[in-house]
């Protein structure tokens, strides 16, 4: 029931439900014991490049290459 109270706060922080659920998933993964922890964390690698197009022209592309997202 904690999420009920939390929902407006992460929404106003500019997060979507996806970011929120990813954060929660990562927290759960961090609760695992070794060696399962490293295995689970190394499985979730994020890498892609994204470029926004405005009026038929590509803007500067940016690359995402994060080993472990939202580690804190």
């Amino acid at each position: 029931m904690a999420s009920n109270a939390a929902a407006p706060f992460w929404r106003s922080a500019g997060m979507t439900y996806i970011t929120y659920s990813n954060l929660c998933a990562n927290l759960v993964r961090n609760c695992l014991k070794e060696p399962y922890k490293t295995e689970a964390l190394s499985r979730e690698k994020v890498h892609y490049s994204i470029s926004k197009w405005v009026d038929g022209k590509p803007q500067k592309p940016s690359k995402y290459s994060l080993l472990c997202l939202y580690l804190f």
Partner: peptide, 30 residues
């Protein structure tokens, strides 16, 4: 050309996983 909003590439450098796809989905939503 005129109708393209976003282009994403190099998805399959690492094996596909949910975290990656959800971050992409998040980017699209935003």
């Amino acid at each position: 050309k005129k109708d393209i909003e976003l282009i994403m590439t190099e998805l399959q450098k690492n094996p596909l996983n949910y975290t990656q796809v959800s971050v992409i989905a998040d980017d699209i939503l935003k």
